[in-house]
């Protein structure tokens, strides 16, 4: 990680400079400089109310910063809408799953398809032959992804009937339909049973191997240490530590004490 030129990595990822987000008088996020590389696994940790979800909203465009600029792939995307950012490859999932409950599992997947295809009104009305062919290919791709997350058997059933864990898997698979270059997962493992969790971890590893960057929020520290290439620690909206797991785990004792509910979190060195 340290051997590669951080500038080059940052150019392709997401960069925040002097970004703050205030709700009334309350400053939820206040980040001086933070760059998240396009590849590898970045974990975002911090206590409740540290600003993790707000930071996610800022990265994905669901909220605009009060001050500062956000760059993605070298371009300023500070005020760009979330759907444009998703089309540019920055796709997120939600802490509380947002599947389309009244659509079938496979239709949920097809909504995630890249834009400019069969979802367009004109193509839907006139259905040219190449669109039908394309639609079949998209469907096959969706079924492959459902196979990966173990939802093929329920593809034609109502997504609203899935269990919480299955909805998490569906949301992840649906996000992959957008062919993201960076995937932002907000607590993908919360409320998921151990078997499904293993499946999720395998999936994330598989994605990273194919060059997709993953940013995720997680509370369970051993799991974070095992999965992440780098860890960003947030507290009260500020980045208090940022670096590879071994560097962060140097402060493991503090972290344990902190997550155990005790005291303040000591400021660690910024690499």
């Amino acid at each position: 990680m340290n051997s590669s030129n951080p500038r080059v990595a940052a150019e392709e990822g997401v960069e925040l400079s002097h970004v703050s987000k205030a709700f009334g008088g309350f400053v939820a996020v206040d980040v001086d400089e933070l760059s998240i590389p396009r590849t590898g696994v970045t974990a975002l940790i911090g206590p409740n109310g540290a600003g993790k979800t707000t930071l996610f909203d800022l990265l994905s465009g669901f909220t605009t910063p009060t001050t500062g600029t956000i760059r993605h792939g070298g371009r300023d995307v500070t005020t760009q809408s979330p759907d444009r950012r998703a089309r540019a490859g920055l796709v997120r999932t939600f802490q509380l799953t947002r599947v389309f409950e009244r659509l079938s599992v496979i239709d949920n997947m097809l909504i995630g398809t890249l834009p400019g295809t069969h979802l367009r009104l004109a193509t839907s009305v006139f259905r040219p032959w190449h669109s039908a062919k394309r639609q079949r290919m998209v469907r096959e791709h969706a079924m492959d992804l459902l196979e990966n997350v173990g939802l093929v058997a329920v593809a034609d059933l109502s997504a609203g009937g899935l269990s919480g864990g299955q909805k998490k898997l569906l949301e992840l698979a649906r996000a992959l339909m957008c062919e993201p270059s960076m995937l932002l997962l907000d607590e993908p493992m919360a409320g998921v049973n151990p078997a499904v969790r293993e499946r999720l971890i395998d999936l994330i590893r598989g994605l990273v191997a194919t060059g997709v960057g993953v940013v995720f929020v997680e509370h369970d520290l051993p799991r974070v240490m095992a999965l992440a290439d780098r860890i960003v620690v947030l507290d009260r909206g500020k980045v208090i530590a940022n670096g590879p797991p071994d560097l962060i785990s140097a402060d493991a004792a503090v972290i344990e004490a902190y997550l155990g509910g005790g005291g303040e979190w000591k400021k660690t060195s910024n690499p």
């Binding site: 509380l96 799953t97 409950e101 009244r102 659509l103 079938s104 239709d107 173990g150 058997a153 329920v154 034609d156 059933l157 109502s158 609203g160 009937g161 899935l162 269990s163 919480g164 864990g165 299955q166 909805k167 409320g191 998921v192 049973n193 078997a195 499904v196």
Partner: peptide
């Protein structure tokens, strides 16, 4: 909906669309 934990529903447990 509620976020059920620790369950994986089988097709027979899920309602059709």
């Amino acid at each position: 909906s509620t976020q059920a934990t620790g369950v994986t529903k089988t097709p027979s447990e899920i309602s059709p669309v």
